[in-house]
Nucleic acid binder design. Structure first.
Lengths: 320, 320
DNA sequence: TACATATCTGAATATTTATTCAGATTGGAC
DNA sequence: GTCCAATCTGAATAAATATTCAGATATGTA
């Protein structure tokens, strides 16, 4: 009989709580109703639809795209950055800044950070990070060999050392090529004490920062010399490769294609990467969409940081 | 530089909290941000207008009228009941039910309840109260003499005894007329042991339930014989009286008019009423609007229970 | 009617959230 | 550059809120 009175009471309590900002205990005293009941009435207020909470995303944020990415690809987190034109250079700036902010606000004390080399996105990210936030990482581990053409070499090494400086962490470089000339040459390099020491840290990495590469190497990577001849690329393509992380190639489904090249790469393997608690992929751009989608399908990353154009493209194709 | 990233983060946190129903500690773990910061971000979300809370009053509730009454007349609480037609009988039913529900849900253990007699509203209220809620009042005190014409007598006494039964409280009746024939007659009655015992409880009353009367007596009151002749009524009118509570008359501003009649009434005085922590007035109807407004202006009640027609009329006239 | 089951309450308490605090950092003012 | 006030952070903790519990009461069922 008293449903309408109850609804009135719920409405009144909701107003006092949400609009007037009163504490439940104050409302309890004012209305002569126990605090427990006030709490229950407030819960009812939401169930009855008397109180509704609306979230208005600010311009330049894309919760729907992010939710779409998280759901479609089972991501822990997706960050979609605003971006004014669909050009590679513009996108790099956008996702670099976004990744920098993500890193700053979510790195915890004592983390062991793994960072790939030869990634323009990561380079932009590190540029965007402010010097010294209060969080101090334990160490920054380079997870892909960084030696190459001296003209672009500095990029690879600086990525690790600058990030280490910014986080007051110990840098652990991987003084070796990304791709050795042969499996035998790789074994020689891996025999080096510094290289071994760094590689021994791989399993301690708590957060890995990686780019995602298309099969066609980026300009930077091509310039570095850590690349493959057209025969090798054709071989990879023939075996279904569509992209790579840390020069480990995977197919349309994100599954490793393996092959002889794997024996020449000095860096984290895909299995080692999967063992890292938080893998953050930073990538965007028309050229890379196919590779990124594959990496997501293969669950190679937990967190994706990208731009709105790439996000739309990743979601445009119906779920497999 | 990072305002947009912060807004994105705030939006994300707000979604996880308000939409997905996650705890701050869970969000903290998911996003690698401390719980303290999550709490601060949620506060910012409201300040920034990203999260908005809307209250939709159900049909048949009148938060605006209630707020208007509370503000205009400095009431602790106002309850406006839905009512389908502006007729006295219909209104009585509406406010009686509403008052019954109010009483049931807000009476606490151990209260001393004062209740006036000769009020049709209170009669309806008591009829609406369900037998025995778990709250048990200590006692129910009749605060206005209830003896009169035997034909309607039962109403007055039953009001007290029924309410006492419903609340498992001890009834304390006031076995005297509401209006004695003379000041001397009143003194005789007040000398009675029972009468004194009950009147001694007046200052212990924690909640008083009262009707509000227009100058022109109601049918029930007129029938009871506890009333005045036209000469007395004219005298009251001449002195500005517009209504009464417990047969204590007040003017347009709610101030007591006093006079010889006061010496003949057996019941709580206005000063005694003002000393009661919670005075609940139950009244409505065209005929009484002027009296109710005056009682409110005089701060004679803390809580008003009325109907939507009366509420609108009380608010229609601009604030004094 | 009697019984079992589902609901309801307030007090006590567990859980969750907001704030205080101390330590750093930032951004001016000079 | 150097200093100072303002701001920011996470850990600890105070405060607020939700839930458990026990006791009663409604409600449905035989």
């Amino acid at each position: 009989m008293s449903r309408i009175y109850e609804l009135r009471l719920i409405t009144r309590v909701a107003q006092l709580y949400h609009v007037d900002g009163m504490k439940q205990a104050e409302i309890s005293a004012l209305l002569h109703i126990s605090q427990a009941t006030i709490s229950r009435l407030l819960k009812r207020a939401e169930q009855e639809g008397i109180v509704r909470i609306t979230i208005t995303p600010p311009r330049g944020t894309f919760p729907d795209l992010e939710a779409g990415l998280r759901e479609r690809f089972a991501l822990t987190e997706a960050i979609v950055a605003e971006c004014y034109e669909d050009r590679e250079e513009t996108i790099l700036g956008a996702i670099g800044d976004a990744a920098g902010h993500y890193f700053e606000t979510t790195v915890s004390d004592g983390e062991v950070i793994g960072i790939s080399s030869w990634s323009a996105s990561l380079l932009r990210m590190v540029d965007a990070i402010h010097p010294l936030k209060r969080a101090r990482a334990e160490r920054v581990v380079q997870i892909l060999g960084g030696i190459g053409n001296p003209a672009v070499q500095s990029h690879a090494t600086q990525l690790t050392t600058r990030l280490a400086t910014l986080t007051s962490a110990e840098p652990m470089l991987l003084p070796a090529q990304g791709v050795a000339g042969s499996a035998a040459a790789r074994l020689v390099m891996v025999g080096d004490g510094y290289v071994r020491a760094t590689m021994n840290q791989f399993r301690r990495v708590t957060m890995a920062l990686i780019g995602i590469g298309a099969l066609q190497p980026s300009v930077m990577l091509a310039n570095s010399g850590n690349t493959f001849d057209s025969e090798e690329l054709h071989d990879l393509e023939a075996r279904g490769a569509v992209g790579d992380v840390c020069l480990r190639f995977f197919d349309e489904k994100g599954e490793a294609v393996g092959g002889p090249l794997d024996e020449r790469v000095i860096g984290m393997t895909i299995d080692e990467l999967r063992a890292v608690p938080r893998v953050v992929g930073v990538a965007g751009g028309e050229r890379k969409v196919r590779a990124i989608r594959a990496a997501l399908l293969g669950r190679l990353v937990d967190v994706l940081i990208t731009d709105k154009f790439t996000a739309e493209k990743l979601l445009a194709q119906p779920a497999p």
